[in-house]
């Protein structure tokens, strides 16, 4: 732990609302402790801005534990900043040096319109889930939880896919703004589990159709999504989605 405080220069995207044009604006934050989280530095900056009667920077955040998926900053050219497997809220200032200039932008994708400053609209993800990212089981219909054994390897794979927090870093990182990693994580989770079996084919088809309708790009297998994913979701899932989708396309009766 270091007690030496830093001065950090920021270039932050400011945009009044969806319709307006944005620009990068310069800020300087003094007395940044290395133990601060990246968002806490923004808190400090915003407090100063309010004190100066200027408008603070709008950004999304909620749990600040790296699990809710709400925080979403594109920091120095990388979603969630320079570390691997970490969300913006878990990024701490000890990853930066005194005098650094940090460029902070919102997720950029046609399917994620900017609402204000660094805040974007990610409801496209909800609509993709609504199109099939579930098991159709009404409350009360379930059998005993241990009736269907699921081997540990398979359960672990399903869990690894289910760890997706829906933050959209994959879309932000992808040069095509593709949502394949997100969609594949959900399709994989349910395809790996016996509970997902009955709707396996329709799920892959309808989720991909919804993903396309939302205006996300195609996957060109660059792997940037997985490299930037704070939950390190594997590219295996994308291959599995391709398999699921093709299999369903070829074999599901019309």
């Amino acid at each position: 732990m270091s007690n030496e405080n830093m001065t950090i220069h920021l270039k932050v995207w400011k945009q009044k609302n969806t319709g307006s044009k944005g620009h990068l604006e310069d800020y300087t934050v003094n007395n940044v402790s290395p133990d601060m989280s990246f968002l806490e530095m923004f808190d400090v900056l915003n407090e100063e801005l309010i004190h100066e009667n200027k408008e603070p920077i709008a950004f999304d955040h909620d749990c600040r534990e790296g699990i809710c998926g709400m925080c979403s900053m594109y920091i120095n050219g990388r979603p969630h900043g320079p570390l691997e497997g970490v969300t913006t809220c878990q990024l701490h200032m000890r990853s930066f040096k005194d005098g650094d200039t940090i460029v902070v932008e919102p997720w950029r994708a046609a399917a994620f319109p900017v609402i204000k400053d660094l805040v974007v609209d990610r409801t496209a993800f909800d609509r993709i889930i609504a199109s099939g990212g579930y098991v159709s089981i009404n409350t009360g219909n379930a059998q005993d939880a241990n009736n269907l054994p699921i081997g540990k390897e398979r359960a672990d794979l399903a869990f690894a896919a289910a760890a997706c927090i829906g933050c959209g870093a994959c879309v932000a990182a992808c040069k095509n703004a593709s949502a394949m990693l997100f969609v594949s994580a959900k399709v994989s989770q349910l395809a790996l589990l016996p509970q997902g079996e009955p709707e396996r084919q329709s799920r892959a088809l309808s989720m991909v159709a919804q993903m396309d309708a939302e205006g996300f790009g195609s996957c060109t297998n660059t792997g940037a999504c997985s490299a930037e994913c704070p939950k390190e979701i594997s590219l295996d899932n994308i291959a599995r989605l391709n398999r699921e989708f093709l299999g369903a396309s070829l074999s599901k009766p019309e």
């Binding site: 120095n76 460029v103 990182a173 195609s218």
Partner: peptide
């Protein structure tokens, strides 16, 4: 071309982790 349309406004800085 279609993929470019998926990101109409580009980033000022990118440090892509892909090749």
């Amino acid at each position: 071309y279609k993929n470019k349309q998926a990101r109409p406004v580009g980033y000022a800085v990118t440090k892509n982790q892909s090749s």
